[in-house]
Write a protein that binds this DNA or RNA. Structure first.
Length: 635
RNA sequence: GCUGGUGUGGCGCAGCGGUAGCGCAAUUGAUUCGUAAUCAAUAGGUCAGGGGUUCAAAUCCCCUCACCAGCUCCA
């Protein structure tokens, strides 16, 4: 007999080779209905799994991350089975569960269109109705290779060949469909209650553009129809926050055919941008930074010296001046290096923190452009910190602290990534190792969780990145701290040490917003266009009830303008309801309704965009309140 | 850059072989009104650009450009 310990610590005795489903049947209840898979001694397995030793047993439902994964993974097999039934000569790529759904990659000579998706979805519903069991079986390596080569599944064969020698090669059968798969899976296709194919896209085999492009079909599935509907609704809602849509509606910016990837900032957008810059200058001054500005175009020799010519050429724009080669800067670092070099520096001067709101241009591939999130010209809130090697750690910490402080002002959620040495990079392994270790130590000392992004560092050094999330959950790199042991020596930067000798300083490149354009985009989506008072393009709008209140309305505007508030009166010949609706759609934080009553007592009737009507108050009291809220940057 | 899709007045959409409509916005007039849309009239489009098929093209075909989703790449 085997001892099985359940989650509630109760222990059951069962004969060896008992299937988990049998235990589940005995337990009955809701769990019997909802269990999708199980965790046996820490390993995720099918419900069909047979116990061979004493076990800690935990059931997994859709509410668990593992359960959701199994559910979506099985859904992707249903997708592949349907495609195999409907189309001849399709080769299978991979089909994993992903956040909010699943996909499967196919190699097929003809291309799938939207009509195909409908056909495939219909076939999937059939397969679900057939309630086919998922059956696991294992093959020896050679058998597996033969099996899948006979089927013509070249990609699967490639995968099998690369599995480690000791790996168990498992397959799952679902009706006539067999797939190489580690599992586990749902007991049968009937468990899937709601499924929908979402879209179609190309994807390179194994993520490399050197490989053939497969056709990827995305979908999602849920154990209840209502959950699927909720999900689709959520996606719809999220689309309303899209910065490209809000950018147009709130008249913040535009991108036009005349300059793909080169955004135009409209007056409203410029207000937000300026507020961001003001706040940035304020904080950087407090943190001991000095501000510089370096040219946008610099000559070829400089870019050769910096290594950009060798390592970054494909992303750069070039021009000729008097027959000499020049490049438009893709980064601000060389400029900062040149300013450092303009005079002798003493160890007593270090650290020197040179900040620059620098406009850079990069030739990004056309397919990657995305509103203001991904553009070809953007302003980095850059800074280069030159310091003694002994100051590195402290400076990295300070940068991280400043980043966290500023992000907190906006209330962002973010995650951190540590990026290590890429291919095609400069410097020795020891240098990279040392630099990477310093960054890692800072993260660990601060107890900040992070993921390692292997091989994703800059060509001159490793980096810590701050990633922010957009309205539909995609993440975008914004802040970054990059350690650089290369540029200072390439540019011959020195400082005079205590010993009277020249030494090479260490350098840190860092941005906090990342790019003002991207940061603004994230900001728009984060607040769904309802910016905190301090950033709002129009902070207050005054709404007179009829023409006889216009003069008073204008006097209210004047008073607020004096107080430094961005305010306008809506004098159009419309009802208050109409003006309110308009101001509400424009997400103006405060609306002041003024009529006979307010005019008589120098009051304003305050309406806040989310709280609604707040009643009347003295104009002076309102002015004071608004000033306070702006100064405190209340979210 | 690659794969698939889309491109019709400022915005959101309909029309999908017989030469363009709707709603909102805009303009003008009337209305002078108390917390998310007052009524009426008017104006606005070489249907992304170029080429082709046809008696006839917004509609079918080809090329280019831009955008959207994803892949690759990045702040």
């Amino acid at each position: 007999m085997l001892k099985v310990t359940l989650r509630d610590n109760s222990v059951r005795e069962v004969p060896a080779e008992t299937r988990i489903t049998d235990i589940l049947n005995e337990l009955g209840g809701r769990l019997k209905k909802e269990a999708l898979a199980a965790v046996v001694n820490g390993v995720l397995v099918d419900l069909n799994y047979q116990l061979t030793e004493d076990a800690d047993l935990r059931f997994v439902t859709f509410a668990d991350d593992e359960g959701e994964d199994v559910y979506r993974h099985s859904s992707s097999h249903i997708l592949a089975a349907a495609v195999k039934r409907l189309y001849k000569d399709v080769k299978l790529g991979i089909g994993p569960a992903i956040k909010d759904g699943f996909y499967y990659d196919f190699d097929y000579a003809n291309s799938f269109g939207p009509d195909d998706l409908e056909r495939i979805e219909a076939e999937m519903l059939k397969i679900i109705k057939e309630d086919l069991p998922f059956e696991r079986f294992e093959l020896a390596r050679e058998e597996a290779v033969n099996y899948f080569s006979d089927l013509g599944e070249d990609y699967k064969v490639e995968l099998i060949r690369e599995l480690p020698a000791e790996a168990v090669i498992s397959c799952y059968r679902c009706g006539d469909f067999v797939d190489l798969c580690a599992g586990p899976h749902l007991p049968s296709t009937g468990k899937v209650k709601a499924i929908k194919l979402l879209n179609l896209a190309g994807a390179y085999w194994r993520g490399s553009e050197k490989n053939p492009m497969l056709q990827r079909i995305y979908g999602t599935s849920f154990p209840k129809k209502s959950l699927l509907e909720e999900y689709l609704k959520r996606v719809e809602e999220a689309k309303k926050r899209d910065h490209r849509k809000l950018g147009r509606e709130l008249d913040l910016f535009s991108i036009q055919d005349e300059g793909p990837g080169f955004p135009f900032l409209h007056p409203n957008g410029m207000i937000i941008r300026n507020e961001l810059e003001n706040y940035w200058r304020e904080e950087h001054q407090k943190a001991g930074y000095q501000e510089i500005k370096t040219p946008i175009i610099l000559n070829r020799a400089l870019w050769e010296q910096s290594g950009h010519w060798d390592h970054y050429k494909d992303n750069m724009y070039f021009t000729k001046i008097d027959d000499l080669d020049y490049a438009v800067k893709p980064m601000n670092c060389p400029g900062a290096m040149l300013i450092y070099k303009t005079k002798m520096r003493s160890y007593r001067d270090l650290p020197i923190r040179l900040g620059e709101l620098g406009l850079v241009h990069r030739h990004e591939l056309s397919g990657t452009l995305h509103g203001m999130m991904r553009v070809r010209s953007f302003t980095q809130d850059d800074a280069h910190i030159f310091m003694l090697p002994s100051q590195i750690k402290e400076e990295v910490k300070k940068v991280i602290a400043l980043t966290e402080k500023m992000y907190q002002t906006f209330g962002f959620d973010y995650h951190l990534e540590l990026s290590t040495r890429p291919e095609n990079s400069m410097g020795s392994d020891e240098m990279w190792e040392e630099a990477t270790n310093i960054l890692r130590e800072v993260l660990e000392e601060r107890g900040m969780p992070y993921v390692v992004n292997e091989g994703d560092g800059a060509f001159y050094g490793p980096k810590i990145d701050f990633h922010l999330t957009d309205s539909i959950g995609r993440t975008w790199q914004c802040g970054t701290v990059q350690l650089d042991f290369q540029m200072p020596s390439k540019f011959g930067l020195t400082y005079v040490g205590e010993d009277g000798q020249k030494h090479t300083p260490s350098a840190l490149h860092r941005v906090i917003y990342g790019s003002l354009e991207r940061f603004m985009a994230v900001l728009i989506e984060h607040f769904a266009g309802a910016f905190p008072l301090w950033m709002a393009p129009r902070q207050v709008v005054v709404l007179p009830i009829s023409e006889k209140h216009h003069a008073y309305a204008l006097s209210v505007v004047e008073r607020l303008q004096q107080a430094g508030v961005r305010v306008e009166a809506d004098l159009r010949n419309e009802k208050v309801g109409y003006k309110i609706r308009e101001a509400q759609l424009q997400k103006v934080p405060y609306m002041l309704v003024v009529g006979d009553k307010e005019m008589a007592e120098r009051q304003v009737s305050v309406r806040e965009r989310s709280a609604g009507d707040l009643g009347s108050q003295n104009l002076e009291a309102f002015v004071a309140k608004v000033q306070e809220e702006i100064a405190a940057k209340v979210r």
